[in-house]
Protein backbone atom coordinates (compact mmCIF):
# COMPACT_ATOMS: atom_id res chain seq x y z
CA UNK A 1 0.00 0.00 0.00
CA UNK A 2 2.89 2.22 0.91
CA UNK A 3 4.23 1.72 -2.58
CA UNK A 4 1.05 2.94 -4.19
CA UNK A 5 0.98 6.00 -1.99
CA UNK A 6 4.50 6.74 -3.14
CA UNK A 7 3.47 6.31 -6.76
CA UNK A 8 0.51 8.64 -6.36
CA UNK A 9 2.65 11.26 -4.65
CA UNK A 10 5.18 11.01 -7.47
CA UNK A 11 2.50 11.41 -10.13
CA UNK A 12 1.10 14.46 -8.36
CA UNK A 13 4.37 16.13 -7.48
CA UNK A 14 6.33 15.44 -10.64
CA UNK A 15 4.58 18.06 -12.82
CA UNK A 16 5.38 20.76 -10.28
CA UNK A 17 9.03 19.86 -10.24
CA UNK A 18 9.04 19.52 -14.01
CA UNK A 19 7.31 22.87 -14.46
CA UNK A 20 9.73 24.64 -12.14
CA UNK A 21 12.65 23.03 -13.96
CA UNK A 22 11.22 24.24 -17.26
CA UNK A 23 10.92 27.71 -15.72
CA UNK A 24 14.52 27.61 -14.55
CA UNK A 25 15.46 26.52 -18.03
CA UNK A 26 13.84 29.60 -19.53
CA UNK A 27 15.32 31.88 -16.93
CA UNK A 28 18.86 30.60 -17.36
CA UNK A 29 18.57 30.68 -21.15
CA UNK A 30 17.41 34.28 -20.96
CA UNK A 31 20.30 35.21 -18.67
CA UNK A 32 22.76 33.52 -21.00
CA UNK A 33 21.36 35.68 -23.78
CA UNK A 34 21.68 38.84 -21.70
CA UNK A 35 17.95 39.13 -21.03
CA UNK A 36 16.00 39.33 -17.81
CA UNK A 37 13.71 36.46 -18.71
CA UNK A 38 10.23 35.45 -17.57
CA UNK A 39 9.34 34.55 -13.99
CA UNK A 40 10.22 31.02 -12.84
CA UNK A 41 6.54 30.05 -12.70
CA UNK A 42 5.99 31.15 -16.29
CA UNK A 43 5.47 27.54 -17.54
CA UNK A 44 2.50 27.24 -15.19
CA UNK A 45 0.96 30.41 -16.58
CA UNK A 46 1.42 28.99 -20.04
CA UNK A 47 -0.08 25.70 -19.00
CA UNK A 48 -3.19 27.16 -17.42
CA UNK A 49 -3.67 29.64 -20.20
CA UNK A 50 -3.58 26.80 -22.71
CA UNK A 51 -6.07 24.84 -20.63
CA UNK A 52 -8.45 27.77 -20.84
CA UNK A 53 -8.24 28.18 -24.58
CA UNK A 54 -10.95 26.89 -26.83
CA UNK A 55 -10.54 23.31 -27.88
CA UNK A 56 -9.66 23.04 -31.49
CA UNK A 57 -7.90 20.15 -33.10
CA UNK A 58 -7.21 18.83 -36.53
CA UNK A 59 -8.09 15.21 -36.03
CA UNK A 60 -9.84 13.00 -33.55
CA UNK A 61 -7.29 10.23 -33.39
CA UNK A 62 -4.65 12.74 -32.37
CA UNK A 63 -6.17 12.91 -28.91
CA UNK A 64 -5.86 9.19 -28.34
CA UNK A 65 -2.16 9.35 -29.05
CA UNK A 66 -1.63 12.44 -26.93
CA UNK A 67 -3.26 10.70 -23.99
CA UNK A 68 -1.17 7.65 -24.78
CA UNK A 69 1.92 9.86 -24.64
CA UNK A 70 0.90 11.20 -21.25
CA UNK A 71 -0.20 7.92 -19.73
CA UNK A 72 2.77 5.90 -20.85
CA UNK A 73 5.09 8.61 -19.62
CA UNK A 74 3.38 8.45 -16.25
CA UNK A 75 3.67 4.67 -16.37
CA UNK A 76 7.43 4.92 -16.83
CA UNK A 77 7.62 7.36 -13.96
CA UNK A 78 5.63 5.02 -11.74
CA UNK A 79 7.91 2.16 -12.74
CA UNK A 80 10.85 4.32 -11.68
CA UNK A 81 9.31 5.26 -8.36
CA UNK A 82 8.24 1.73 -7.58
CA UNK A 83 11.78 0.65 -8.47
CA UNK A 84 10.64 -1.82 -11.08
CA UNK A 85 12.27 -3.24 -14.18
CA UNK A 86 14.46 -0.67 -15.92
CA UNK A 87 14.24 -2.42 -19.29
CA UNK A 88 10.48 -2.22 -19.15
CA UNK A 89 10.80 1.43 -18.19
CA UNK A 90 12.87 2.10 -21.30
CA UNK A 91 10.29 0.28 -23.42
CA UNK A 92 7.50 2.37 -21.92
CA UNK A 93 9.45 5.54 -22.51
CA UNK A 94 9.95 4.45 -26.10
CA UNK A 95 6.28 3.72 -26.49
CA UNK A 96 5.36 7.12 -25.08
CA UNK A 97 7.64 8.56 -27.76
CA UNK A 98 5.91 6.52 -30.44
CA UNK A 99 2.54 7.78 -29.29
CA UNK A 100 3.85 11.31 -29.67
CA UNK A 101 5.12 10.56 -33.17
CA UNK A 102 1.79 9.05 -34.13
CA UNK A 103 -0.01 12.11 -32.80
CA UNK A 104 2.16 14.12 -35.17
CA UNK A 105 1.35 11.80 -38.03
CA UNK A 106 -2.38 11.79 -37.48
CA UNK A 107 -3.29 14.75 -39.63
CA UNK A 108 -2.51 15.95 -43.07
CA UNK A 109 -0.18 18.70 -42.00
CA UNK A 110 3.15 18.99 -43.77
CA UNK A 111 4.86 20.58 -40.76
CA UNK A 112 3.77 18.07 -38.20
CA UNK A 113 4.68 15.29 -40.63
CA UNK A 114 8.17 16.66 -40.97
CA UNK A 115 8.38 16.91 -37.23
CA UNK A 116 7.05 13.39 -36.70
CA UNK A 117 9.49 11.88 -39.17
CA UNK A 118 12.32 13.71 -37.46
CA UNK A 119 11.09 12.67 -34.06
CA UNK A 120 11.28 9.08 -35.29
CA UNK A 121 14.90 9.70 -36.19
CA UNK A 122 15.47 11.13 -32.74
CA UNK A 123 14.02 7.98 -31.23
CA UNK A 124 16.24 5.92 -33.48
CA UNK A 125 19.18 7.86 -32.06
CA UNK A 126 18.47 7.61 -28.35
CA UNK A 127 16.69 4.27 -28.04
CA UNK A 128 19.81 2.06 -28.46
CA UNK A 129 21.70 4.06 -25.86
CA UNK A 130 18.91 3.73 -23.31
CA UNK A 131 18.67 0.00 -23.96
CA UNK A 132 22.44 -0.35 -23.66
CA UNK A 133 22.20 1.48 -20.37
CA UNK A 134 19.67 -1.08 -19.13
CA UNK A 135 21.93 -3.93 -20.24
CA UNK A 136 24.95 -2.34 -18.60
CA UNK A 137 23.05 -1.94 -15.34
CA UNK A 138 22.14 -5.61 -15.57
CA UNK A 139 25.76 -6.48 -16.23
CA UNK A 140 26.76 -4.56 -13.13
CA UNK A 141 23.98 -5.60 -10.77
CA UNK A 142 22.80 -8.92 -12.17
CA UNK A 143 19.28 -7.61 -12.21
CA UNK A 144 17.10 -5.28 -14.19
CA UNK A 145 15.26 -4.16 -11.09
CA UNK A 146 15.88 -0.59 -10.04
CA UNK A 147 15.51 -1.70 -6.42
CA UNK A 148 18.77 -3.61 -6.81
CA UNK A 149 20.54 -0.40 -7.78
CA UNK A 150 19.63 1.05 -4.42
CA UNK A 151 21.00 -1.99 -2.64
CA UNK A 152 24.35 -1.57 -4.33
CA UNK A 153 26.73 0.60 -2.38
CA UNK A 154 29.12 1.49 -5.20
CA UNK A 155 27.60 4.25 -7.28
CA UNK A 156 26.81 3.05 -10.80
CA UNK A 157 28.69 5.99 -12.24
CA UNK A 158 32.02 4.48 -11.25
CA UNK A 159 31.95 1.38 -13.46
CA UNK A 160 29.44 2.88 -15.89
CA UNK A 161 30.90 6.29 -16.60
CA UNK A 162 31.10 5.83 -20.40
CA UNK A 163 27.40 4.92 -20.48
CA UNK A 164 26.74 7.90 -18.25
CA UNK A 165 28.39 10.19 -20.79
CA UNK A 166 26.33 8.58 -23.55
CA UNK A 167 23.22 9.12 -21.44
CA UNK A 168 24.01 12.80 -20.99
CA UNK A 169 24.50 12.93 -24.73
CA UNK A 170 21.09 11.45 -25.47
CA UNK A 171 19.56 13.64 -22.81
CA UNK A 172 20.14 16.52 -25.20
CA UNK A 173 18.19 14.65 -27.85
CA UNK A 174 15.45 13.62 -25.48
CA UNK A 175 14.97 17.13 -24.09
CA UNK A 176 15.07 18.47 -27.65
CA UNK A 177 17.80 20.97 -26.94
CA UNK A 178 20.18 22.39 -29.53
CA UNK A 179 22.00 20.92 -31.43
CA UNK A 180 19.24 18.32 -31.48
CA UNK A 181 16.07 20.42 -31.40
CA UNK A 182 15.25 18.82 -34.70
CA UNK A 183 11.70 17.57 -34.42
CA UNK A 184 10.51 20.59 -32.50
CA UNK A 185 11.99 23.23 -30.26
CA UNK A 186 11.29 25.19 -27.13
CA UNK A 187 11.03 28.82 -26.11
CA UNK A 188 10.76 31.09 -29.09
CA UNK A 189 12.88 28.88 -31.32
CA UNK A 190 11.18 27.83 -34.47
CA UNK A 191 11.87 24.85 -36.63
CA UNK A 192 9.61 24.27 -39.60
CA UNK A 193 6.99 26.35 -37.82
CA UNK A 194 6.93 24.27 -34.63
CA UNK A 195 7.71 20.85 -36.08
CA UNK A 196 5.70 18.05 -34.58
CA UNK A 197 3.95 20.43 -32.17
CA UNK A 198 2.47 22.56 -34.94
CA UNK A 199 -0.99 21.04 -34.84
CA UNK A 200 -1.44 20.65 -31.10
CA UNK A 201 -3.32 23.61 -29.79
CA UNK A 202 -5.08 24.81 -26.69
CA UNK A 203 -5.69 22.18 -23.99
CA UNK A 204 -4.06 19.53 -26.13
CA UNK A 205 -0.85 21.49 -26.24
CA UNK A 206 -1.16 21.81 -22.48
CA UNK A 207 -1.22 18.00 -22.35
CA UNK A 208 2.01 17.90 -24.30
CA UNK A 209 3.62 20.40 -21.95
CA UNK A 210 2.48 18.37 -18.96
CA UNK A 211 3.96 15.23 -20.47
CA UNK A 212 7.22 17.03 -21.12
CA UNK A 213 7.41 18.00 -17.47
CA UNK A 214 6.95 14.38 -16.49
CA UNK A 215 9.61 13.51 -19.01
CA UNK A 216 12.12 15.94 -17.53
CA UNK A 217 11.59 14.48 -14.07
CA UNK A 218 11.80 10.95 -15.37
CA UNK A 219 15.00 11.55 -17.30
CA UNK A 220 16.67 13.34 -14.43
CA UNK A 221 15.52 10.48 -12.22
CA UNK A 222 17.28 8.06 -14.55
CA UNK A 223 20.41 10.18 -14.38
CA UNK A 224 20.28 10.28 -10.60
CA UNK A 225 20.19 6.46 -10.50
CA UNK A 226 23.86 6.61 -11.34
CA UNK A 227 24.55 7.70 -7.78
CA UNK A 228 21.73 6.07 -5.91
CA UNK A 229 23.44 5.75 -2.54
CA UNK A 230 22.97 8.36 -1.09
CA UNK A 231 20.36 9.62 -3.48
CA UNK A 232 20.93 13.32 -2.87
CA UNK A 233 24.29 13.10 -4.63
CA UNK A 234 22.50 11.58 -7.60
CA UNK A 235 19.94 14.36 -7.56
CA UNK A 236 22.69 16.97 -7.52
CA UNK A 237 24.37 15.23 -10.44
CA UNK A 238 21.06 15.18 -12.30
CA UNK A 239 20.48 18.88 -11.70
CA UNK A 240 24.02 19.64 -12.79
CA UNK A 241 23.37 17.64 -15.95
CA UNK A 242 20.22 19.67 -16.52
CA UNK A 243 22.11 22.95 -16.23
CA UNK A 244 24.78 21.59 -18.52
CA UNK A 245 22.08 20.84 -21.11
CA UNK A 246 21.02 24.47 -20.96
CA UNK A 247 24.54 25.66 -21.60
CA UNK A 248 24.83 23.28 -24.54
CA UNK A 249 21.49 24.52 -25.82
CA UNK A 250 22.67 28.09 -25.84
CA UNK A 251 26.09 27.58 -27.35
CA UNK A 252 25.27 25.01 -30.03
CA UNK A 253 23.72 25.48 -33.43
CA UNK A 254 21.07 23.11 -34.71
CA UNK A 255 22.43 20.13 -36.64
CA UNK A 256 20.78 18.00 -39.32
CA UNK A 257 18.84 14.85 -38.55
CA UNK A 258 21.19 12.59 -40.51
CA UNK A 259 24.19 13.91 -38.60
CA UNK A 260 22.37 13.29 -35.36
CA UNK A 261 21.66 9.62 -36.12
CA UNK A 262 25.19 8.98 -37.30
CA UNK A 263 26.92 10.67 -34.40
CA UNK A 264 24.67 9.37 -31.69
CA UNK A 265 24.99 5.81 -32.96
CA UNK A 266 28.74 6.26 -33.11
CA UNK A 267 29.06 7.90 -29.69
CA UNK A 268 26.43 5.76 -28.02
CA UNK A 269 27.64 2.51 -29.47
CA UNK A 270 31.34 3.08 -28.92
CA UNK A 271 30.87 4.20 -25.35
CA UNK A 272 28.22 1.59 -24.64
CA UNK A 273 30.08 -1.30 -26.19
CA UNK A 274 33.36 -0.40 -24.50
CA UNK A 275 31.56 -0.14 -21.21
CA UNK A 276 29.77 -3.46 -21.69
CA UNK A 277 32.98 -5.12 -22.78
CA UNK A 278 34.70 -3.88 -19.64
CA UNK A 279 31.88 -5.17 -17.46
CA UNK A 280 31.91 -8.53 -19.24
CA UNK A 281 35.65 -8.85 -18.78
CA UNK A 282 35.35 -7.97 -15.13
CA UNK A 283 32.63 -10.56 -14.57
CA UNK A 284 34.47 -13.10 -16.69
CA UNK A 285 31.56 -13.73 -19.04
CA UNK A 286 33.66 -13.23 -22.13
Amino acid sequence: MNQWLLAIIAVVVAPFIGGILAGIDRKISARLQGRWGPPIVQPFYDFFKLLGKSKIAVSRVQLVWLYGYLFFMITSLVLLVLQQDILLLVFMLGFAGICFVLAGFSCKSPYSHFGANRELLQMLSYEPVLLLMALAIYAQNGSFMISEIFKNNTPLIVPLWPIFIALIYVLTIKLRKSPFDISTSHHAHQELVKGIMTEFSGPYYALVLLTEWYEIVLLLGLVSLFWANPLWVGIIIALAAFVLEMFIDNIAARMTAGWMVKVSWAVGLILGVLNLAYLYLKKGVL
Binding site: K55, A57, E199, P203
Partner: peptide, 12 residues
Protein backbone atom coordinates in the same frame (compact mmCIF):
# COMPACT_ATOMS: atom_id res chain seq x y z
CA UNK B 1 -11.50 16.91 -23.38
CA UNK B 2 -13.60 15.16 -26.00
CA UNK B 3 -13.91 16.87 -29.32
CA UNK B 4 -17.14 17.99 -30.91
CA UNK B 5 -17.37 18.00 -34.70
CA UNK B 6 -17.45 21.81 -34.75
CA UNK B 7 -14.06 21.99 -33.08
CA UNK B 8 -12.15 20.54 -35.96
CA UNK B 9 -9.99 23.04 -37.82
CA UNK B 10 -7.95 22.79 -40.98
CA UNK B 11 -4.23 22.17 -40.61
CA UNK B 12 -1.72 24.97 -40.71
Amino acid sequence: LALKPGELRPVY
